[in-house]
Design a protein around this nucleic acid. Sequence first.
RNA 1: UGGGCCGUCGCCAAGCGGUUAAGGCACCGGGUUUUGAUCCCGGCAUUCGGAGGUUCGAAUCCUCCCGGCCCAGCCA
Length: 553
Amino acid sequence: MNKPPTPVASNFIRNIIDGDLAANKNDGRVVTRFPPEPNGYLHIGHVKSICLNFGIAKQYGGKCNLRFDDTNPVKENEEFVKAIKADVEWLGFEWDELKHASDYFDELYNYAVELIKQGKAYVDSSTAEEVRSMRGSLTEPGTPSPYSNRSIEENLDLFARMKAGEFEDGEHILRAKIDMASGNINMRDPTLYRIRKVHHVRTGTDWSIYPMYDYTHCISDAMENITHSLCTLEFEDHRPLYDWVLDTLQTPAHPQQIEFARLELEYMILSKRWLKKLVEDGRVSGWDDPRMPTITGIRRRGYTPAALREFCERIGVTKNDAWIEMAVLETIIRDDLNEHSPRRMAVLDPIKVIITDLADDYNETLSFANHPQKEEFGRRDVAFTKEVMIDRDDFSENPPPKYQRLIPGGEVRLRGSYVIKCEEVIKNDAGEVIELRCTHDAATLGKKPEGRKVKGVIHWVSASAGVSAEVRVYDRLFTVPNPGAAESLEATLNPDSIAVHKQCYLEASLADAKPEERFQFERLGYFVADRYEHSKQNPVFNRTVTLRDTWAK
RNA sequence: UGGGCCGUCGCCAAGCGGUUAAGGCACCGGGUUUUGAUCCCGGCAUUCGGAGGUUCGAAUCCUCCCGGCCCAGCCA
């Protein structure tokens, strides 16, 4: 029954590291880092990077740091720092060192002075507009800035005064002097420092200039003795600059940047801009809405850290722009939950069934296995009474072909209980079915009925012994595989991405569930007690995923 | 049209000059089952974007072509 663990697949990054180890590069050390900017919530795309970086370190007996890339104080704050740490920990990883790019502001400044002294950096006093127009285009080379030949002394003086706060935002920038005619636009005298007279969460008002990503990242990696700096494909063009900085300066190390493809998932959107819009427009309840692809949202939906890690292992790491089907994610969470979740019965859209040949006060205690294949999950008692609730779509007056649930005059097994027969259908004035009158076959408890076959089995909850609860049924947020490519995001929103059932009947024991405790509601799917809103008094469950359904509807 | 990168089954993905081209997901059968679940068994690329070439031998090397992605923030 237990599946063998998926073997660790080889990938191009592991191949590179194996080669480095074989050549005894870096003295056999493997050091990676996960470097988020604390400007938003982490999502499943980041999970791929987290699993890759921490996973590589673990597999090779190396280290992995968590480093906040906090070089742009106007976009960053402490709330995100806390949330990111919590997400990484929840995923089951421990960082070796907690770092911030801002830890290196002094070194970064000194290295910049060194570049100026080498004649490799200069202060440009052009406007942003002028800098842009002189950069050229994708097909035309740029033109040198009129400030690129300032003397070293003048550059040193200006840069020191930039640091001292003598100038306002935008008056000057520090640029590397590389090649304005390069085919790679990142090499056309990239900006190293800009003036930002704003408060920084960690350095306060110490600085009025802040280093840019390209200049900061490579040096931060070097300062931490990172061996393999893993990032996404869009940074491929930045690698020459990464290497230029480290080749030009005397840094403690020269890490190797390796790029891999970011995660793309069908029916999801991972762009921060769009996720923000969903939250701001009230399309979801917040960043932790169970439909959101954020780690906090996925967690609230009921996914497990182990499933997310397994997902990353299975999708692999390549340089291909890959679109992963939802089925991959869903299969993995089902496998995990099937293995680890106790079973319960719950009725989401109830119809009352009265078993007419039972006494009004009938109350039988039935013993149910908590897991059909795992004895160690133990058993529980379930009350069977004269009135029970069943789900509305387990009864049909006009059944489709091969329907094997309850129909007028037909029989069906109440799971773990008796076979009942529908004798009478009661409707209200609107013609809606409100009650079914049934009889039961007393000889069918734990036995097959005699002389006939009853194929259908449906779940149920005692009307008097069950507890009422709210159950939120979630589905994908979008109706198209690639909503990001649509003309209008709104038009692709799935109007049925959430269905709240407020009058559900659950087995009584479910009220005692702890927040984030997971169950399989038999025949319905896997559900989790809501992390924030569930309580014994007001049970609230979220559907994580349905059961696999091979019955063509 | 400048620079960088990518094309192996419907979706992922191993493969690194000699293998009958792994594996997972999906799909299609069949069996077990008091969850239309789980589980089990079987099927599913004579072919690696295309065309040439090198070689005894090519998905793996070379050339050209085709298709796709990324880059012109004082964002990361």
